[in-house]
């Protein structure tokens, strides 16, 4: 009996919570930075949906910026060029840096190399977060399969907090989207989504579907509703 965990959870799975809301009491395991403890009580610090599994609590935020995490896949927008690096907007509170030596994969010589030839202001880049510790700005890397400049397709922006919904449990939502539209889709953690479709009609439908997911992220049964939505749109437009 002594090992028995003593806890009380006051919220239901997928319940909408707001800052200051008491979630639980006692021996709770927390995997979100947005749950905090005061005395014996656990509170939410953010608007989000709680994930409850026995005494494990997590919150999926519904609002807010992208917060960089090492290893995250992001789509950045080059906004400035420094002497040895590019300054990249990744929709986080902090601008990211992409170093010339990482992109060129060799020693960088500012006299010979013109950085603009590789990435210019306004270019999108698919990259990974290599370093980030809050004291320094996040650093990006291209050293992995499929990373680099984005030269085709389209970028759709959604709220970064809605990314988990676009992917879904075990990629269920994302797989459904790919299946139903036949488009190539890359969902970056910072809420930028790269899509590449066979034709404009499908692209249109996919964008509408993504926006629908963003808007209804906090509701249940979403995958089925989005699938139906895509099918209806396709038949309305006379596709396949």
């Amino acid at each position: 009996m002594s090992n028995e965990k003593e806890y009380k959870v006051y919220v239901e799975n997928r319940q909408l919570v707001i800052p200051g809301e008491v979630l639980a009491e006692g021996d709770i395991e927390v995997t979100s930075p947005f749950i905090y403890r005061l005395g014996n009580r656990w509170y939410s610090s953010i608007i989000g949906l709680v994930d409850v599994q026995d005494n494990k609590l997590n919150i999926i935020p519904l609002e807010g910026y992208y917060f960089p995490k090492v290893g995250d896949l992001v789509i950045g927008l080059v906004i400035d060029i420094g002497i040895t690096n590019w300054i990249v907007d990744i929709r986080a509170p902090y601008k990211a840096l992409m170093n010339a030596s990482d992109v060129l994969n060799r020693q960088f010589n500012p006299i010979q190399d013109d950085l603009r030839r590789y990435f210019d202001v306004g270019d999108y880049v698919l990259a990974k977060i290599a370093l980030f510790d809050r004291v320094h700005n996040p650093v990006l890397t291209l050293k992995d399969k499929g990373l680099g400049k984005i030269v085709s397709g389209k970028i759709v922006e959604i709220a970064p907090s809605r990314v988990p919904r676009v992917i879904g449990k075990r990629r269920s939502m994302l797989n459904m989207l790919i299946e139903e539209t036949g488009c190539d889709i890359v969902v970056a953690q910072n809420g930028r989504i790269w899509i590449n479709c066979k034709d404009e009609q499908l692209e249109d439908i996919l964008i509408l579907a993504l926006k629908k997911i963003e808007l209804e992220a906090h509701t249940t049964g979403l995958t089925d509703r989005v699938r139906n939505f895509i099918r209806e749109e396709k038949s309305r437009r006379g596709i396949e």
Partner: peptide, 11 residues
């Protein structure tokens, strides 16, 4: 602040 997704102890 809450609408901006900024973590708050309480409203």
């Amino acid at each position: 602040l809450a609408d901006a997704g900024i973590p708050l102890r309480d409203l």
